[in-house]
Structure formats: structure tokens, C-alpha cells
Amino acid sequence: MKVGIIDYNAGNLRSVELALRHLEIDAFVSGNPRDLVKADRLVFPGDGHAATSMHNLRERGLDELLVNFFRRGLPILGICVGSQIVLDSSDEKAAGEAEPTRCLGLVQGTCHRLEGSSPSGPLKVPHMGWNAVQFSDAHHPLVQGIPSGTDFYFVHSFYTEVSDPTIILGRTEYGQEFTTGFVKDALAAWQFHPEKSGEWGLKLVANFFQWRP
């Protein structure tokens, strides 16, 4: 298996790289589509702004790479911003921009800002820390062996809303309930950081590499 980690200047890839090394999964980091096209699985991480991330992807020709990879049915693991910008659009806009940020459009849906209140006052945003993820299909190979309701590590201010409810795999409550995991064809997307979520997180990453979609 050849695993490529997409580098598009969107946060720290080091923790993803180290988690894969710990799981003895051979992976290379690259921002060049000509290298990444040789991979048979991609990890698409990311921290940061949706508009900046889309800009960086387009500048490197990585948007096309991802679209082609997805159409060929090769597995992609989207993490955090990487789980958001596979949707049609995001409300996380560039400064002065009126329209939502146009994203990759691999999966029908949009991203909205987290809002709401908590028992002790206004909701703190970003949603930072450990929170439970309820799996809608406990037998799915991606979550095999992991109890529904396990806590994972989150850091984000926007959440995903997918149009097709049948693709949802994880839901989480923070101010409101929202989607934190979905699977579309060979694309698996998690809002939280499995590479920073302890042993259960590592198990989730390992499951992705066992998965034969």
C-alpha cells in the first residue's frame, strides 16, 4: 500500500505522520500532485481556514487530484478541515467575501458556524477538547471494535451538514447535535483528530487502512 499525506500548508502534519509511523503504515508527505497521484490511499488532514485551505489546494493543483482520486474510488481519509472542504461549500469565508466559500463538492453538503448556549452561559467556540461520538452503524468496518460514544479530541469552529443522511456515521452534541463522521463511496471523513485521540483514535486510523470499500 502506498499512502500519501497531502501537504497544502494547512496546519501541522507531523502528528498524522507520527501516528501512521506508530501503526507501521508507510506513508509519504507531499504537496505535489505528480507524487501523490502514485499513492493508492490519501490522508487529507488540515487545521485552519476553509477559504485559505481551498486557495492553497487550487494553487498546487491538489483540488483536481482529490476529485480524480475520489472518482477513481480510491480511499481518502479526511480529517478536520479535510472533512469539511470535501463538501460543496462552507460559511467560513475569506474577509470581505459575501458568498460562502466554494469547496471541492465531492459530497453534497455545507459547513456552518457552531452556535448555541451551554448550561453555564454562551457556548465557547472553538469546540475544544474531548467529546463523545455516537456511531450510527456500530458494525461499519471503519468503527469496528470501537464502542459507540467513545470520546475523541476536537478543535473546530465550523461543523458539517451533509444532504444525504444515509452517509452519516458519527454524531456529536455540543450546543446542538451535528455530524462528525460520514462515509461516501471510498471517502471517510472525521471532524475530530483521531491522530490525537489516544488509543481509540489510533484504532480508528488503523481501521481506515484495513477498510476495503
Binding site: 502528528s15 507520527l18 491522530e195 490525537k196 485521540s197 489516544g198 483514535g201
Partner: peptide, 8 residues
């Protein structure tokens, strides 16, 4: 530390 522990 980053090689050994997988929490923030």
C-alpha cells in the same frame, strides 16, 4: 514525546 503519546 510526539513519537510516543497520541494526545495533544
Amino acid at each position: 514525546v510526539a513519537e510516543k503519546i497520541f494526545i495533544p
